[in-house]
Amino acid sequence: MIPERNLMEACGINNKLHRKWVSDITDMLEEGPGVILRLEKIRKAIIGSPEPMLWYSKKRMELEMLCLESNKRIAECRYENYSDFVLNAICFRREEVLIEVRQRMIQEGCSVNDLKDIYDAMLM
Protein backbone atom coordinates (compact mmCIF):
# COMPACT_ATOMS: atom_id res chain seq x y z
CA MET A 1 0.00 0.00 0.00
CA ILE A 2 1.19 3.50 -0.81
CA PRO A 3 0.86 5.64 2.37
CA GLU A 4 0.24 8.85 0.39
CA ARG A 5 -2.82 7.22 -1.20
CA ASN A 6 -4.36 5.88 1.99
CA LEU A 7 -7.97 6.97 1.64
CA MET A 8 -8.84 5.79 5.13
CA GLU A 9 -6.28 8.14 6.67
CA ALA A 10 -7.28 11.03 4.40
CA CYS A 11 -10.97 10.72 5.38
CA GLY A 12 -10.22 10.93 9.09
CA ILE A 13 -12.55 8.04 9.96
CA ASN A 14 -12.81 6.58 13.44
CA ASN A 15 -11.35 3.20 14.44
CA LYS A 16 -14.70 1.37 14.41
CA LEU A 17 -15.47 2.38 10.81
CA HIS A 18 -11.84 1.72 9.85
CA ARG A 19 -12.07 -1.87 11.16
CA LYS A 20 -15.38 -2.39 9.33
CA TRP A 21 -13.90 -1.20 6.02
CA VAL A 22 -10.83 -3.38 6.44
CA SER A 23 -13.07 -6.36 7.25
CA ASP A 24 -15.31 -5.72 4.23
CA ILE A 25 -12.36 -5.32 1.85
CA THR A 26 -10.72 -8.47 3.22
CA ASP A 27 -13.97 -10.42 2.73
CA MET A 28 -14.22 -9.19 -0.86
CA LEU A 29 -10.64 -10.20 -1.63
CA GLU A 30 -11.21 -13.67 -0.17
CA GLU A 31 -14.47 -14.08 -2.08
CA GLY A 32 -12.64 -13.52 -5.38
CA PRO A 33 -14.64 -13.24 -8.63
CA GLY A 34 -17.87 -14.01 -6.77
CA VAL A 35 -17.71 -10.49 -5.34
CA ILE A 36 -19.20 -9.22 -8.59
CA LEU A 37 -22.47 -10.88 -7.59
CA ARG A 38 -22.78 -8.27 -4.86
CA LEU A 39 -23.61 -5.73 -7.57
CA GLU A 40 -27.39 -5.74 -7.79
CA LYS A 41 -27.82 -5.07 -11.52
CA ILE A 42 -25.32 -7.74 -12.53
CA ARG A 43 -26.83 -10.26 -10.11
CA LYS A 44 -30.31 -9.60 -11.51
CA ALA A 45 -29.06 -9.98 -15.09
CA ILE A 46 -27.46 -13.33 -14.28
CA ILE A 47 -30.46 -14.65 -12.38
CA GLY A 48 -33.04 -13.17 -14.78
CA SER A 49 -31.53 -14.53 -17.99
CA PRO A 50 -28.76 -17.08 -17.46
CA GLU A 51 -29.08 -18.62 -20.95
CA PRO A 52 -27.24 -15.87 -22.89
CA MET A 53 -24.38 -15.87 -20.39
CA LEU A 54 -24.15 -19.65 -20.48
CA TRP A 55 -24.16 -19.64 -24.29
CA TYR A 56 -21.47 -16.96 -24.41
CA SER A 57 -19.39 -18.83 -21.83
CA LYS A 58 -19.52 -22.01 -23.93
CA LYS A 59 -18.49 -20.13 -27.07
CA ARG A 60 -15.65 -18.41 -25.26
CA MET A 61 -14.39 -21.70 -23.85
CA GLU A 62 -14.52 -23.28 -27.31
CA LEU A 63 -12.54 -20.36 -28.75
CA GLU A 64 -9.96 -20.67 -25.97
CA MET A 65 -9.54 -24.39 -26.67
CA LEU A 66 -9.26 -23.77 -30.41
CA CYS A 67 -6.67 -21.07 -29.80
CA LEU A 68 -4.58 -23.35 -27.58
CA GLU A 69 -4.77 -26.22 -30.04
CA SER A 70 -3.86 -24.00 -32.99
CA ASN A 71 -0.87 -22.57 -31.11
CA LYS A 72 0.27 -26.12 -30.34
CA ARG A 73 -0.13 -27.15 -33.97
CA ILE A 74 1.69 -24.07 -35.24
CA ALA A 75 4.59 -24.81 -32.90
CA GLU A 76 4.72 -28.42 -34.10
CA CYS A 77 4.59 -27.45 -37.79
CA ARG A 78 7.01 -24.52 -37.54
CA TYR A 79 10.06 -26.46 -38.64
CA GLU A 80 8.30 -28.56 -41.22
CA ASN A 81 6.97 -26.97 -44.39
CA TYR A 82 3.64 -28.65 -44.89
CA SER A 83 -0.01 -27.79 -44.62
CA ASP A 84 -1.68 -29.24 -41.57
CA PHE A 85 -5.25 -30.42 -42.21
CA VAL A 86 -6.13 -30.19 -38.51
CA LEU A 87 -4.84 -26.63 -38.29
CA ASN A 88 -7.00 -25.69 -41.26
CA ALA A 89 -10.02 -27.31 -39.60
CA ILE A 90 -9.32 -25.41 -36.37
CA CYS A 91 -9.16 -22.10 -38.23
CA PHE A 92 -12.39 -22.91 -40.07
CA ARG A 93 -14.20 -23.77 -36.81
CA ARG A 94 -12.87 -20.62 -35.13
CA GLU A 95 -14.35 -18.57 -37.94
CA GLU A 96 -17.70 -20.40 -37.62
CA VAL A 97 -17.85 -19.68 -33.87
CA LEU A 98 -17.05 -16.01 -34.42
CA ILE A 99 -19.75 -15.73 -37.07
CA GLU A 100 -22.27 -17.31 -34.66
CA VAL A 101 -21.29 -14.81 -31.97
CA ARG A 102 -21.53 -11.89 -34.41
CA GLN A 103 -25.00 -13.00 -35.54
CA ARG A 104 -26.16 -13.25 -31.93
CA MET A 105 -24.72 -9.82 -31.16
CA ILE A 106 -26.52 -8.32 -34.14
CA GLN A 107 -29.79 -9.94 -33.03
CA GLU A 108 -29.35 -8.36 -29.60
CA GLY A 109 -28.75 -4.89 -31.06
CA CYS A 110 -24.96 -4.65 -31.22
CA SER A 111 -23.35 -3.23 -34.36
CA VAL A 112 -19.95 -4.97 -34.25
CA ASN A 113 -19.09 -6.56 -37.60
CA ASP A 114 -15.34 -7.19 -37.49
CA LEU A 115 -14.62 -10.79 -36.50
CA LYS A 116 -11.12 -9.87 -35.30
CA ASP A 117 -12.58 -7.33 -32.86
CA ILE A 118 -14.98 -9.95 -31.54
CA TYR A 119 -12.16 -12.50 -31.22
CA ASP A 120 -9.95 -10.03 -29.35
CA ALA A 121 -12.76 -8.99 -27.01
CA MET A 122 -13.70 -12.57 -26.19
CA LEU A 123 -10.15 -13.68 -25.43
CA MET A 124 -9.01 -10.62 -23.50
Rank of each mutant, 00 (worst) to 15 (best):
A89G: 00
R94T: 15
E95C: 14
F92I: 13
M105H: 04
C77H: 08
E108K: 09
C91N: 12
R102F: 01
V86S: 09
S57F: 04
L17E: 07
L54N: 07
L54I: 10
M28E: 15
N14D: 14
V35M: 03
L39M: 11
G48E: 00
E4C: 12
P50T: 06
G12C: 07
V35F: 01
W21G: 01
M65I: 08
P52E: 10
I47L: 15
P50V: 12
I2K: 15
N6R: 12
M124F: 12
N71V: 03
R73I: 01
H18E: 12
S83A: 14
E51V: 02
E96V: 13
L87I: 05
G32L: 07
A75S: 15
L7G: 11
Y82R: 15
S83E: 15
R102S: 07
R5I: 01
K16G: 09
L29V: 13
S57Y: 05
P52M: 01
H18F: 13
K116L: 05
C77N: 13
E30Q: 15
Y119S: 08
E80A: 12
E95W: 11
Q107F: 03
L29K: 14
R93D: 06
R73D: 05
I13D: 02
R19A: 10
E51Y: 07
Y119V: 00
R94S: 09
M28C: 09
D117C: 02
N71T: 06
I47T: 12
M1N: 13
I47S: 08
A89D: 08
N14L: 12
E76T: 04
I47A: 05
L7Q: 11
G34F: 09
V97A: 01
N15F: 07
E95H: 11
N113T: 14
E100K: 02
L29E: 03
V97F: 11
N14I: 03
V101L: 00
E64Y: 00
E96R: 08
A45G: 02
S49Y: 05
M1G: 14
I99S: 06
D84M: 01
P52N: 00
